[in-house]
Design a protein around this nucleic acid. Sequence first.
DNA 1: TAGATTGTTAATCGATTAACAATC
DNA 2: TAGATTGTTAATCGATTAACAATC
Lengths: 218, 218
Amino acid sequence: MGRIKVQNSPTIRRMPSYLHELLRIRLEGRSHISTTELAECMGIELIVVRKDIALTGIAGRRRIGYEVNELITYIKDYLGWSGRITATLLGVGALGSAILGYDEFPVYGVQIESVFDSDPEKIGKVIRGHEVYDIATIGQRLSYSPPDMAIICVPAVHAQEVAEQAVAVGIKYIWNFSNITLKVPSGVIVQREVIAGGLAMLTVKMKNDKAGIYQKIE
Amino acid sequence: MGRIKVQNSPTIRRMPSYLHELLRIRLEGRSHISTTELAECMGIELIVVRKDIALTGIAGRRRIGYEVNELITYIKDYLGWSGRITATLLGVGALGSAILGYDEFPVYGVQIESVFDSDPEKIGKVIRGHEVYDIATIGQRLSYSPPDMAIICVPAVHAQEVAEQAVAVGIKYIWNFSNITLKVPSGVIVQREVIAGGLAMLTVKMKNDKAGIYQKIE
DNA sequence: TAGATTGTTAATCGATTAACAATC
DNA sequence: TAGATTGTTAATCGATTAACAATC
């Protein structure tokens, strides 16, 4: 059974918060920000922010700080959020619907392209602008050009089965909102931890076979 | 500005998963479980599970393992989930509604007692069995006997204001689902991190003024 | 007994924190 | 210049991992 280790996971957990704050700061029209100020407005120790920002590899200007746009780019790169991630939502119950309505996904580069459910009441209906497809048709609809990620919001009893279907069509990332640990083949990354207040995905960085935030990979 | 430090936070993050798994195992009618088996079925390293379980202070039986019911009790105690936590839900939009419908809250001892919103369309309506009250009446309704926790699901622009109202009525824990960092008086614990796949609250253990998972306390 | 498991102690590793150098 | 800030190196702390003792 292989495992993946998440490196710098505390830093990775904080990164989305920096990103969120920076996006807010950019909206205010600010062009530069110092770690001093960022630490102050986020309630995090200065040295922590400094170390985290340093990890992105960005160069700052002494006495001035970092260019906001540039820092946003560096953090996105660090998190692997710079490219667009296409996603399919599997299960559009209460939580799935809330996720579908989360209007900051585009900001983070996540684009939900399709929505599936097994409830005949929902199939064919349009929810938040997305037509709901029958989950039984997932192979037929997605295997030609699978999205990067499946967001699993089905009840726990169906989660494993649905995850396997997702893997079968070639999906490589699973964001698992169900209550169970999913067993998927090696190479598929299952993310089970979520940071609310941002609904941020935790980026997974591979390492060797050591401990950390694990997912069983079989 | 004071700060709180979370001790053993990696362990605390894992505890709800153990709890969830144990509840499942108990439903199967099992009376005992070994860390070997628990580690195997959860995909976590044996030694990690062993250390975590040891932290709860439970005594096991060699060659047999731990009594499932007892272990559940010890983990709940460790997390501070043994007593019942009363809660009020502030904001019943898509996410709030999903939270309201989360049927495992009672398992974890969280009891949502009241629901507030500011939308005239929703006030007075009954959503998932709860009458929605006007958020403007929160002081009048809750200050006599405030719940332990406020679950904040209002839009980011209102989150700070709503948090302050919650604090004003005497609420001591805030579970913040909004996108912003809340500024609250010292002594109120704001939890911003959530583990999905369990929607588990992260228990906060106080320590001295060192680093860790912080919340600004002012 | 042998082996599976708990229980405990020590070693290692990595994250946090402190201290200070560099410089605009 | 003085001071604010970045940048860097070292020290400390705590979590993970390894090793092994105890025992049913």
